[in-house]
């Protein structure tokens, strides 16, 4: 299976990645290879095999419901590009 350049551009846009022409060409080749590999794996009989959600054979650790974090706003905001009145400021977004 081969990905077209337009597919790669769309995927890159969804991930907010800016690709040069050369990168787009290179990635469409590399991503197509990955898809070919997946196609190859589809040939394996996986009847009755539970899909793997995580490579570690372990389950989620449960944390008791307790507040353990103190307010560190001023520390966090000291590295923010812009903040005022406790709010982080970003270029205007409106739907």
């Amino acid at each position: 299976m081969s990905l077209q350049k337009a597919d790669v551009e769309r995927i890159a846009h969804l991930a907010r990645l800016a690709l040069t022409e050369e990168e787009a060409a290179r990635y469409s080749g590399e991503l197509s290879n990955i898809l070919d590999f997946v196609r190859q794996m589809e040939g394996v009989d996986t009847e009755g095999v539970v899909p793997m959600a995580h490579p570690l054979d372990a389950t989620l650790r449960l944390r008791p419901d307790q507040v353990t974090e103190a307010d560190e706003r001023s520390l966090f905001q000291s590295i923010a590009p812009m903040a005022t009145e406790g709010l982080y400021l970003v270029p205007k977004v409106i739907e």
Binding site: E85, G86, Y88, V90, K92, V93, I94
Partner: peptide, 15 residues
């Protein structure tokens, strides 16, 4: 939460 009202050309973010 995003606050769009109070700032010119900026949005305030409260997390």
């Amino acid at each position: 939460k995003s606050l769009h009202e109070a700032f010119h050309a900026l949005s305030g973010i409260d997390l």
